[in-house]
């Protein structure tokens, strides 16, 4: 893998670690209301807290929440939502895609028609309508993202599997009368994996970005447990009055997360497609 690829991988690992260790890294639990103090609201970066000795390095939001702590916890939620929905959508998409490729005929036609219909409709609108229906919540947004993204994986898995299924080793496995699931899981799937991983890295970025967007529109997560997107949204009304830190810092962190996902996707693609490797 390229240097850029390794760099993005290390960055992503560091972000994941920061999210995992948020309770130990953060100076405050921003979701525990007892630790917030309304008298500390909207302090600029570097301010000292009123009653306890701490310093708010990145300032505080409208509830007196330490921005740095809120961002670490927000990162945790954003990554949880992104990774969870990606894994679920990947699984659902791969199962349906393999099924379509293996069975062919009406199963293929049915699944791919549904995929076509779904892909003709932008993911954001689908997720938006679903969330307007279910209300905010982590599980609900994961569900909405799953519904919005499975079709991409199904299409990728199907076309990759179709290529594999025509290869000799699959024909041989069929002759040996190996069980279908075994051929698919042990032989076809591993060969489709590089393409699928590239799509997954891209879609992970898309999922995290989509969650942030939906939270920004007020349809994503509850206010007391803000993700990065919600933190940005909460700062919107203060932007014009010069309290930039409430939305600028979480935004920068979000950009770092998305960029490292996309960098990784780029590197994976170059690896999967040797013709592109020459650059």
């Amino acid at each position: 893998m390229s240097r850029r690829g390794w760099f993005s991988l290390i960055l992503l690992a560091a972000l994941l670690l920061a999210a995992l260790l948020a309770p130990w890294l953060a100076s405050q639990n921003p979701y525990d209301l007892a630790t917030l103090d309304i008298l500390d609201a909207r302090l600029p970066p570097g301010s000292a807290a009123l009653d306890h000795g701490g310093t708010y390095w990145l300032g505080t939001d409208a509830q007196g929440r330490d921005m740095l702590s809120a961002m670490l916890y927000g990162l945790r939620i954003s990554l949880t939502v992104g990774v969870l929905s990606t894994l679920l959508a990947l699984t659902a998409g791969v199962v349906l895609g393999l099924l379509a490729a293996w069975h062919g005929r009406w199963v293929d036609a049915l699944i791919m028609r549904v995929v076509d219909i779904q892909l003709s409709f932008p993911a954001i609108l689908l997720a938006l309508v679903l969330l307007a229906l279910t209300g905010p919540g982590v599980s609900k947004i994961v569900l909405a993202l799953l519904a919005a993204q499975w079709a991409y994986y199904a299409r990728t898995a199907r076309s990759a599997a179709l290529v594999e299924c025509q290869k000799d080793y699959v024909a041989a496995a069929r002759l040996l009368r190996l069980p279908t699931w075994r051929i698919l899981l042990r032989h076809v799937l591993p060969n489709c994996l590089p393409t699928l991983l590239t799509v997954a890295a891209l879609q992970l970025a898309a999922a995290i970005s989509l969650e942030a967007t939906l939270s920004f529109l007020g349809l994503g997560l509850p206010v007391t447990e803000p993700s990065l997107g919600l933190l940005i949204a909460n700062g919107f009304q203060y932007l014009l009055s010069g309290r930039y830190w409430i939305s600028v810092f979480p935004g920068l962190l979000l950009v770092v997360v998305l960029t490292s996902c996309n960098l990784l996707a780029d590197a994976l693609r170059q690896r999967a497609d040797p013709r592109e490797a020459g650059r």
Binding site: F236, L239, L240
Partner: peptide, 13 residues
Amino acid sequence: SLPTFWVGMMFIM
């Protein structure tokens, strides 16, 4: 990688 809504906000600012 830049989320649309954040870019919009930064442009406004």
